[in-house]
Amino acid sequence: MSLKLDDFIGIIVIILSAFLYFLTNDLPEQSAFFPKYLIILFGVLGVILFFQSFKNKREQSKESSFSMKNLKDPSKALGLLIVYVILINLIGFFIATTMFVVVFMVVFKEKSFKKVVLTAVLLDAFLYVLFVYQLNVPLP
């Protein structure tokens, strides 16, 4: 038997609510009251989702959207974003931003060299004027 997407989500929700319910034991009774009921509701909805998708065998259209082909570019973008965030901590905001914009555009096939440089420079200048100069937000 193969698990379908919604079955899978249902199971995750049920496990998550069991874990969260366990955590509420450490809380004072007053603070735990609302979360407890909420977590029970979360778990019950997870169970309903599980059985609903278990019964509905014919709906399988959604899974195809999780193909490698569809996920490849979004995961690349996410990877670049995460590296960008790490770089900000290491080498500062403006250098990291310039690198991110240039690399992103090269990876996703922006051919015109002029456009790549122009976008990076204009963006940096705009952010500097708006945040550092105008709004006094010190960027990292």
Binding site: F104, M105, K109, T119, L123, L127
Partner: peptide, 14 residues
Amino acid sequence: FSILIPVIIVFSLV
């Protein structure tokens, strides 16, 4: 979109 998306990401982050 190869220009718009990195710009939007940078704005979201800032």
